[in-house]
Design a protein around this nucleic acid. Structure first.
Length: 513
RNA sequence: GGCGGAUUCGUCUAGAGGCCCAGGAUAUCGCCCUCUCAAGGCGGAGACACGGGUUCGAAUCCCGUAUCCGCUACCA
């Protein structure tokens, strides 16, 4: 399993520049899965080498999102480990040491070219459609005197890697065929910036080496950098890790990188950050399962599986190298599956923050509310996300409900007929214990006695109690409302119907749907 | 422009030369169940990007073409 015969050590290396992207989450997940499958170690390393893009709070958001998804790490800035520090800005001395080593051994050099020169160079290259666009290696061939002069004048400088000028570099990604590139096409990239911070290329190679990383599973956008990284390893005399570049997650239309500022075909917003999915009411287990199947299959004929099953079956060699459009409808379905599998008390607990947020009721008040225990069973098989619940049960928590009274007129009946049915139902209900077991058969029998279909009678009651034509099951709704409120709402409905009857004395008036 | 990657039902995928006139899932459509809505059950329609090879035989191998995506920064 471990092609290089070392215990598996992999890492997730986010840069704290923003919230945790869904694509990053999947990368983290596959890394995690690989270590849990192999019994290896999963490390979290923070790549904060770009001071200009540093976002305070991003790190917290990233770790929160990973925790939420259930991805725990064995070594990292918060949990420690033998290979620290795990934050790159705290490892600057190490990078300087190895950059100096490269310079001393002729694998790197200081470059004093100005931004203006570099820009002009790029513009010129683009204009003549040059084969390779990049640095012209100008400073690589400075004489010792020129160099000394530049240093003496205090010119700012960066350090560039001196690529071999001839030959090719073959590189392997376990998900793709081995390829090779001409070394001269890699134009001496910057490895140490003028502010003293390393670029990704250097920091990444140095850290992966000293942290004894065996497998690098990272985003596809790094694939073109592999030959550079391989050359860095060679210059140092180190062994490169095994690479697997993970395909991008595309937007639901499959038109490009998943990103903000895009809308779905149905006008819905496309969620791109893990925290957004959390706030939209998706469950961590469902997200975990969902992210897993974006580029990997646990089995040929089943999409629903637990973490343990994923861990048991996972193999990086089975990852699909083609990019995937985000299948939102499948996520919705899957989340519904996970919600339905929950124990009712657990669902209730999960629902509280969402109901509180969406209904504007304090969590404490919600917990103390007599209707609370009835809510989860009412919505469990009707919601795809936790956030769907509020609009289904808002009538339970409303002080009063508003609806068009004509909705109380049942199909096939007029106002008077509906009123008679409702009054009969009211009478039956008052004579019985307020339980589903007692009420449902009795009202069914009543419908038959009145020559109505259950749906006609129940429909009147549904509108009376909820103000809606579409609502959760009737008798469960009654229990949530409680005896008193149920009868009060029926009372109100009777009043509405009375007015309708008086208002339209034409006895055979067609009911408005 | 250069370089790199990818290409199986709308979408997520299974598939590593005969098991595939391509399997699963989701979405969609229909039927059943049913107090509405769901959930559930059953069924339908739906794909190997295109063109050449190689082979007795190709979704699977090779070569082109097309399309999409990525990289081409003192960002990661």
């Amino acid at each position: 399993m471990t092609e290089n015969n070392r215990p598996v050590r992999v890492r997730m290396a986010p840069s704290p520049t923003g919230s945790f992207h869904l694509g990053s989450a999947r990368t983290a997940l596959y890394n995690w899965l690989w270590t849990r499958h192999t019994g290896g170690k999963f490390l979290l390393r923070i790549e904060d080498t770009d001071q200009s893009r540093y976002a305070p709070g991003a790190l917290q958001d990233i770790t929160d999102s990973m925790h939420w998804l259930g991805l725990d790490w064995d070594e990292g800035p918060d949990v420690g480990g033998d290979y620290g520090p795990y934050v790159q800005s705290e490892r600057l001395a190490l990078y300087h040491q190895w950059v100096n080593w490269l310079i001393e051994h002729g694998h790197a050099y200081r470059c004093y070219c100005s931004e203006e020169r570099l820009n002009a160079l790029r513009v010129e290259q683009q204009a003549r459609k040059a084969d390779a666009i990049g640095y012209d290696r100008h400073c690589r061939f400075l004489t010792a005197e020129q160099r000394a002069e530049l240093e003496a004048s205090g010119s700012p400088s960066v350090v560039r890697f001196a690529m071999p000028l001839e030959g090719e570099t073959a590189y392997t990604d376990i998900l793709r065929p081995t390829r090779s590139v001409e070394n001269r096409k890699i134009l001496d990239p910057v490895i140490l910036k003028s502010d003293g911070y390393p670029t990704y290329h250097l920091a990444n190679v140095v850290d992966d080496h000293f942290m004894e990383i065996t497998h690098v599973l990272r985003g596809d956008e790094w694939l073109n950098s592999v030959p550079l990284h391989v050359n860095l390893y060679r210059a140092f005399g180190w062994e490169p890790p095994i690479y697997a570049h993970l395909p991008l997650i595309l937007d639901p239309g499959g038109e490009g990188k998943l990103s903000k500022r895009k809308k779905r075909a149905d006008g819905q917003e496309i969620l791109t950050y893990v925290e957004e999915y959390r706030d939209a009411g998706y469950l961590p287990d469902a997200m975990f399962n969902f992210l897993s199947i974006l580029g990997w299959a646990q089995s040929a004929d089943n999409d629903l599986f637990s973490r343990a099953e994923a861990v048991a079956a996972f193999d990086i060699h089975d990852i699909n190298a083609s990019p995937a459009a985000l299948p939102i409808s499948k996520l919705d379905w899957m989340n519904g599956q996970y919600i339905r599998a929950l124990d009712t008390p657990v669902l209730t607990e999960l629902l509280i923050p969402f109901l509180s947020r969406d209904l504007g009721i304090a969590e404490d008040a919600l917990r103390a509310h007599p209707a609370l225990p009835f809510i989860a069973p009412l919505v469990q098989e009707r919601i795809k996300t936790l956030a769907d619940a509020a609009s289904l049960v808002d009538f339970v928590f409303a002080d009063k409900i508003d609806y068009d009274p004509t909705m109380l007129i049942a199909k096939g009946l007029d106002a008077a007929g509906s009123l008679a049915a409702l009054e009969a139902a009211d009478g039956v209900m008052r004579s019985l214990p307020f339980t589903e077991e007692a009420l449902e058969p009795a009202l069914r029998a009543l419908a038959t006695d009145l020559g109505l279909k259950p749906g006609q009678l129940f429909g009147i009651l549904r509108v009376a109690l909820t103000g809606k034509n579409v609502a959760p099951p009737l008798f469960g709704s009654m229990m949530a409302l409680g005896n008193e409120e149920t009868l009060a709402r029926i009372e109100d409905a009777k009043t509405h119907l009375c007015k309708l009857v008086e208002g339209s004395p034409s006895d055979r008036g067609e009911p408005t749907p």
